[in-house]
Design a protein around this nucleic acid. Structure first.
Lengths: 258, 258
DNA sequence: CCTTACTGTTTAAGTAATACACAGATTTAG
DNA sequence: CTAAATCTGTGTATTACTTAAACAGTAAGG
């Protein structure tokens, strides 16, 4: 965790002797990111990255200590250093929505990101910039630092896991030669065969109402697949924002009252 | 997704000829679960599970189609079929808290569960029982089916990813020979070296306040590690519940007003 | 009885991460 | 200006993993 900070901020002292390196860490990470973007994270093996660059497998280890480190570096690189700017109007709700939207778009642009194991909160320059941007909005909403951190981690966790599921479902659907909404309908159909009203009253009422069969009401967000678990992110985020709002109001009320 | 339902509910017609099987799917899954509980998911290889049972690697494939299927079966098995019972008092807030607590405890009892890829919402008998229990509370709170489903997926996503990070941080700490709170302080210390007030105003104020250095105020929940990202789950869940409450009240108010 | 279908085993193919020693390049000490 | 030191990318090898395919033995059906 602390060593991750060294990895991502470390000065990487340039050597004073020996042949000029033709490869570089940046080239290795860049090739790996390009490969993951094109063919998914499971295509990223040390051998494959090396082949992509026209070098031998072992040459990569001169620039990266291990595959794990490479993955961490890839994550930091794909994060980018351009989180949403502070809003002029100071509207914290819109600010957090922007942040969540931007994060979702980032994940959708590099779907493999959500499959890279996080070993803690962000550590690299880019990750921390995003964290700063999110915290700024939550503190602006009236939360204390610690509360803002906790909320931001929770929101990020929900986004990551939801997008992960979306990607996984999309992959499975593509593999089966269908679309995501279609395979969702298949899922609903298969569920109906096993979900009995006695054992699963709520669930079976839900299936009767056709919740999983409906065409999505809203058009899919740009770049996103229609349907899938991310459909519900917006509703959920709104409830979270409502909850923050209620909490901050109550706190202010207390403060005034005391 | 639909085939997962077959896998987890399928009738597994018993063969009419040939030698009596000594191994069984249950034994394979059980051994794999025990192994994962004891040594983590990365210890679960087909070879290792077979060795644990005293059979050859390939024998497992008579009872399980692939390692992926084995993992799915393990997840279903570790889920268990005993989600919280409906509360007598009908207190939906407490009901959802119970559900989230029980889920967290379940994840902490089998930390590897959160590393098993989900290919969609629950499909097996046990997974669906838990889903039913969660939906019941959310519908009881006044959400419509679709809304309840979306909220439950969001809450589950947040729990899973947060526990995943907790486990990962705990593992890293243990590997480094320290405790989680100690390595959190190391993290804060390392952050202070790179987080400048100009580039990271909010973050650096947070570090000044010592947010990551403090001993946790509340004692660690039973079975859980002290510190780590799960510390914030309670606060976050309360905000979500507040948000649901506000939403339902507003809806009811509208309905009465109309 | 003997064919059929099923069991667990053997063998082997293919992919992966990475340790280690090497040949050649380049800088620096003397 | 040479020799030692140091660094680069390469070649080779080890270990571990999933799983395909052919096989030998076992139990039931006709």
């Amino acid at each position: 965790m602390a060593r991750e900070i060294d990895l991502l901020w470390g000065p990487r002292a340039s050597p004073r002797r020996g042949p000029k390196p033709k490869l570089s860490r940046e080239a290795v990470v860049g090739a790996a990111v390009a490969l993951a973007d094109a063919e998914g994270l499971e295509a990223v093996s040390m051998q494959r990255v090396a082949k992509e660059l026209g070098y031998t497998t072992m040459s990569l280890y001169r620039h990266v200590d291990s595959k794990e480190d490479l993955l961490t570096l890839m994550g930091e690189a794909a994060t980018g250093n351009a989180p949403p700017e502070p809003r002029e109007d100071g509207d914290w709700r819109a600010g957090i929505e922007d942040w969540a939207d931007a994060t979702t778009r980032r994940y959708r642009a590099h779907p493999w990101m959500v499959f890279v194991q996080l070993s803690g909160p962000p550590s690299g320059p880019n990750g921390l910039r995003w964290m700063e941007a999110g915290l700024r909005e939550l503190v602006g909403a009236g939360l204390r630092s610690g509360e803002a951190l906790e909320m931001l981690l929770l929101i990020t966790a929900a986004l990551r896991e939801t997008i992960r599921m979306e990607v996984e479902m999309g992959r499975a659907a593509a593999e089966a030669g269908t679309t995501l909404p279609e395979s969702e309908r298949d899922y609903a159909r298969a569920l109906r065969a096993v979900v009995t009203p006695e054992r699963f009253p709520t669930l079976s009422r839900m299936l009767e109402e056709g919740v999983l069969d409906q065409e999505p009401a809203s058009p899919p967000p740009e770049g996103g697949q229609p349907g899938g678990p991310a459909e519900g992110l917006d509703f959920g985020l709104q409830r979270i924002l409502d909850g923050i709002d209620a909490y901050v109001r109550a706190k202010d009320g207390d403060a005034r009252g005391a």
